[in-house]
Design a protein around this nucleic acid. Structure first.
Lengths: 349, 349
DNA sequence: TTGTATGCGTTATCAC
DNA sequence: GTGATAACGCATACAA
């Protein structure tokens, strides 16, 4: 009598005069159903407005039709980082049109990272995971493999991994920034980096040091947790040095913004006395004064590519390692000619 | 032979020498099980390491053990808005310790808002929803009700609603900002607001106009979509007026930052020539120069309260309307005494 | 080419 | 009071 009662596969079978099993075969385009039975079944299903019950399907197939993203960073850091919302937007671009759903889990005060992965796997809440913020010798790779889940990593791990990966050569972005500064005559530069445990922070640091060396610049690196607060502290420390840098390459935009604030408070002009470049090319950057020179990566495209790769793995595709387009340097107002051009440098022209 | 095979309730029943049904009763603390049978069952379950299969549980109980958050705003706007990550962090604080999972859906190019809600409901992917960014005469209230889902709204809707709500009096925050500016001698102020269709944008606008009137100030309002770009445009328009305001109250921090950029580009000093206040008290704000005066709301606490309210509804609690702590104004460097103090105003002291 | 049985946990229904 | 049984909803291995 319930008006809400959805038709079940049994209703369709009865109406079409066949068994439940055959209905399932017909509706999933499996072989072994006569053309005649197939049309009878499809008609009956359409007439009743039948759609499969996802939960029953989930139980019998062992799939969740959901993928997960575990956010391991402190949530305070996430809130300040526009990378995640953009990544999520990209994931949704793909998941939303393929019947998948995105399950978001954060490591919270009440439950830590490994437990979060174990919980998702124990309950089979997801079929696969997006692994982000890869760390050196990341134990999550093995953990997720043992838990029997599929996954795609953002960037290639430094350990053996059975998973597909989608990468962006952020090192190339940093290199662009350093070369830009070299061309402007800077020869004493610094990098405000992310945590050394994170692979992409390491990669950026290495690219920075290589590019500085290749361009004959003296360089320095300060590590942070990616937060604006530590970006500010790092800047204060760098500018207090006797041979303070004339340009700083930051590993994200919010640290760059905080760094500009610190420099200006010390009476320095940006870019007159200090050039600053950011990373991620946040919307806000172009509205600041000075507008921020920044390395532009396409987090949304990254998310979309990762989602596609994960769906591919779930469908049984071979492991693939996808390299996305190189980031580009967007030059705005926060970088300019060095205040202390090296002898024979560009300052002469 | 599968080494992965989890014990099922049938294994427990066999080991305890009872039926599946009785095992279920025993493990869910239902009456009708003798103390003797209960201990036998519990021992057997512990010995086998049995845990219920969530998918089977989901099928038989009709619950998903998941809650959803649909993000209706353009994803580009979300990426720039630290409100959502903080909200999500708050939701996770509660969900993660109560066996719930957060399903995130975004209105994407391929699928729009109403379809997203219908899709979640059709597949019963979630038991309840968090409704945010409430609009005037919001059709989602009725829609979600018809779809048979529970929900909690962030803020009280302007239509009849069967759902609990969790609210913050953002009007009070705006009032604080206006009174602060009045005390500084400003008498020509403006508000850069969010979309008029959004209830909280309306509420803030109304609070702004009331407070300006109560303090004898002339006021103006410009509407935007909350993006930094439109915040910049609005500021340019306001400052081009013959009687340009001496202070602008922005409805979020990123518009305030963009506004400061525009003002400085026009040769105005902030706060010397123009005072600026933001909303949300973003981490970044305190590192800017000038550091941003902003209305602080606790998005994370808001999320946690909403999650608790939703779990309450799912458990059958009565509809509740929760009012959170009033926002506070954090006064920093971007607001100061008016450059044109009104006659008899504070400028004399 | 088609029908049947089984897997999952919960719960309504029935038997003692 | 105490317990067993069957049905739910779908996919699929297997039998016919």
């Amino acid at each position: 009598m319930s008006p809400e009662a959805r038709p079940t596969i049994a209703d369709v079978a009865r109406k079409a005069g066949v068994s439940k099993g055959l209905v399932s075969f017909a509706l999933n385009d499996k072989p072994g159903v006569s053309a005649q039975a197939r049309t009878r079944i499809l008609d009956a299903a359409a007439e009743l407005g039948w759609t499969p019950n996802l939960r029953a399907r989930s139980l019998s197939t062992g799939r969740s039709f959901a993928c997960g993203l575990v956010i391991g960073r402190s949530t305070d850091v996430i809130a300040a980082d526009p990378f995640f919302p953009s990544l999520i937007a990209g994931l949704e671009d793909v998941f939303s049109v393929s019947g998948q759903v995105l399950v978001l889990s954060a490591a919270t005060p009440g439950r830590h990272e490994v437990e979060t992965y174990r919980g998702l796997a124990a309950d089979r809440r997801v079929d696969g995971l997006i692994l982000t913020d890869l760390r050196a010798a990341d134990e999550r790779i093995a953990l997720v493999g043992e838990l029997g889940l599929h996954a795609v990593t953002l960037g290639r791990p430094d350990v053996d991994s059975p998973f597909s990966s989608v990468s962006v050569d952020d090192g190339a972005g940093i290199r662009c920034a350093v070369e830009h500064l070299a061309a402007l005559g800077h020869d004493r530069i610094a990098h405000v980096a992310g945590p050394d445990a994170m692979l992409h922070a390491r990669r950026r640091t290495a690219a920075f040091e290589d590019a500085a060396r290749a361009n004959g610049m003296s360089s320095r690196v300060v590590r942070t947790d990616f937060s604006a607060a530590q970006g500010a502290t790092a800047t204060r420390d760098l500018l207090a040095l006797a041979d303070a840098p004339t340009a700083i390459v930051y590993s994200n935009d919010q640290m760059a913004v905080a760094g500009i604030g610190v420099a200006e408070r010390l009476g320095l002009r940006v870019p007159g006395d200090l050039s600053v470049s950011g990373f991620d090319d946040t919307e806000l950057g172009r509205h600041l004064r000075p507008a921020l020179t920044s390395v532009a990566t396409d987090a949304r495209a990254w998310g979309a590519a990762a989602a596609r790769a994960l769906l591919g793995m779930l469908a049984g595709d071979a492991v693939a390692h996808i390299e996305l387009a190189e980031p580009t340097l967007v030059i705005r107002e926060s970088t300019s000619v060095s205040p202390h051009p090296p002898t024979g440098g560009l300052g002469r022209h």
